[in-house]
Every structure is written in structure tokens, then in C-alpha cells.
Design a binder for these strands. Structure first.
Length: 272
DNA sequence: CCACAACCCTGAGGGC
DNA sequence: TGCCCTCAGGGTTGTG
């Protein structure tokens, strides 16, 4: 499930093969993969535009074209990569949107679960407006984090998953950050002490930065644009480790519960 | 403001 | 081998 580190890794991997290329055609076989504008308008507007740059905002891949922004959200099982046009190798039956590029290449959006979406807009706020601060930016200080937490009574794990509260954190890194901060995921946000707020601020940034260093977590579907796997999953303390011994204290087994309709992993001994 | 559930989807994995 | 069932979950929407 691509979160901030996975999306950042995809963005970095796409710069070299994509920047400078021009979109010459568009194909799709699943209209619901196209969020906005309507599929009829999308093709006529995107064709002829050249890729200027690629960046990330929250969990969105932002491809800067000369007139518009092409945004892609991978949701659960989305992949975005450049391949040789009509390549026989790397057969991928889940490609639902393709952008033909100059030089006989194509940008493919593949998504087995069909949750992901592509967007074309000249105003990024149409898509990402209202999303919270980027946790790895310098302007996201512990003071900012604390200020945003004040008055919030939500369960802390739910709040971390809320993109309007903070950008890019998903289920895996929320569990990992809470574990390393020794905070129980069910705690209400306004119950956190100043010390715990500082700890959580630090571990949220640390697990995301480490995730990027390891080029993302290849759980189930995620792959880097070159098709290889990331290594982040090898460094998890709690995610997917329910029933196994806690790597932090060794005194308990990792438990799994459900918070905000998400599988939630934690150590009942370490996290209070 | 908050909790909860349905919804969008289909592959993977377990039980039999 | 294959059928049925459950699970995985990011974000949106609706209800209470």
C-alpha cells in the first residue's frame, strides 16, 4: 500500500525516464480510473504536453506538464512506470491507462484493484487542497505538530491516518511510528503529554525518512518503477508481525486490533 | 468535531 | 483442482 515513502520512491524513479518526453496519445479501458476531467476531455487536453518535472504531494505523484499537472494516486495496488511501447516483456494485464510518449515509450498506470485515479488540472488545489502539512519539510516543526494536535480528541492512530491532519502517513508507517514512540494506538490525541508529542513527532519523521532510504515497502503489490522491490518491509517492528515476539522489549507478542477500519499492530507491553 | 459503516474493487490465501 | 469465504485497505460519502 503505497504511502509517502513508496510514492516518493516512485517519483524519484520516474524522473530520468520521463522528464523531457512529450505525451502523444492516450488510451484507457476503465473509465473510473480517470477522476477529472471527464475521460472525453482528458485525452484532447493532455496530448501534446511535455513533462517538465515530477514531484510528490502527500500520496499523490505530481507530473508537471507545460500547461497542466498530471496527478496520479496509486491507492492500494496502483503502479506507474515507463515501458517500451507494446513491449512483449513485462506483460501487465492490469494496465488501465496508458500515455504514449515520443521515442516509442509509454507511461503505464496499472492497478489490479482499480482504486487508483489519474487527474489533470491546472490548479493543484482542485485535488490536494485541504491536505495537511508535509511531515518531512523543514517548516513542519514540533511546534506545528503540537499546535495541530491541540483540541483534537480523536484516537491518535485515526488522526495520523487523516490526510487533512498530516500528509502521507498510511497504515504501515502510522503503526511503526506509534510503536517507536511507545504510544498505544487507541490513545486519544489530547491525552498525549508534551514528551509524548515530541517522541511521536520524531518517530513519524524517522520512519518516513527510513522508508525512503529503503526505497519503500514491497508489501503485496508495491514495486519501484523499474520493477524491483523496496526493502522497507524488512525493517518493520510491528506491521504484519502479529503473534510474533516484540523486537523492542522481547517481553510480549505483537497484537492486532482494528482502528478506523484498519488492521492495527502494536506491542501491549511497550505501548501505553 | 467524532465514530462508524458502506462503498469502490479484485487477488491472495485458508478451509474443505 | 476448485469452490467458497474472508481479508487487505485509501479515501469519499453518508448517518447518527
Amino acid at each position: 500500500m503505497p504511502e509517502l515513502p513508496e510514492v516518493e520512491t516512485v517519483v524519484r524513479g520516474l524522473r530520468q525516464p520521463l522528464i523531457g518526453h512529450t505525451i502523444e496519445s492516450m488510451w484507457y479501458d476503465w473509465e473510473n480510473s480517470i477522476a477529472l476531467p471527464h475521460a472525453n476531455e482528458f485525452e484532447g487536453r493532455v496530448v501534446g504536453q511535455t513533462v517538465i518535472g515530477i514531484r510528490r504531494r502527500a500520496k499523490y505523484i505530481v507530473i508537471e506538464l507545460d500547461k497542466d499537472l498530471l496527478l496520479v494516486h496509486l491507492r492500494m495496488t496502483g503502479r506507474l512506470y515507463v515501458a517500451e511501447e507494446n513491449a512483449v516483456q513485462r506483460v501487465d494485464k492490469w494496465v488501465h491507462v496508458k500515455f504514449g510518449l515520443d521515442g516509442a515509450k509509454e507511461l503505464r498506470f496499472s492497478d489490479s484493484r482499480k482504486f487508483g485515479k489519474v487527474y489533470l488540472t491546472d490548479n493543484i488545489d482542485d485535488v490536494t487542497g485541504g491536505i495537511g502539512p508535509e511531515p518531512l519539510e523543514d517548516t513542519f516543526t514540533v511546534a506545528v505538530f503540537k499546535e495541530r494536535l491541540t483540541g483534537r480528541r480523536k484516537v491518535i492512530k485515526s488522526l495520523l491516518l487523516d490526510q487533512h491532519f498530516i500528509a502521507g502517513v498510511g497504515n504501515i508507517y502510522a503503526d511503526e511510528a506509534l510503536h517507536r514512540a511507545a504510544i498505544h494506538p487507541q490513545r486519544s490525541a489530547d491525552s498525549l503529554s508534551d514528551e509524548e508529542i515530541v517522541r511521536l513527532y520524531t518517530t513519524v519523521r524517522a520512519v518516513l525518512a527510513a522508508g525512503i532510504q529503503h526505497e519503500g515497502a514491497s508489501i503485496n503489490w508495491y514495486r519501484k518503477p523499474d520493477g524491483t522491490q523496496g526493502e522497507s518491509q524488512k525493517h518493520f517492528y510491528v506491521y504484519g508481525r502479529d503473534g510474533q515476539d516484540c523486537l523492542t522489549c522481547g517481553q510480549a507478542r505483537i497484537e492486532k486490533s482494528r482502528i478506523a477500519q484498519r488492521g492495527t499492530h502494536f506491542c501491549p507491553n511497550c505501548q501505553k
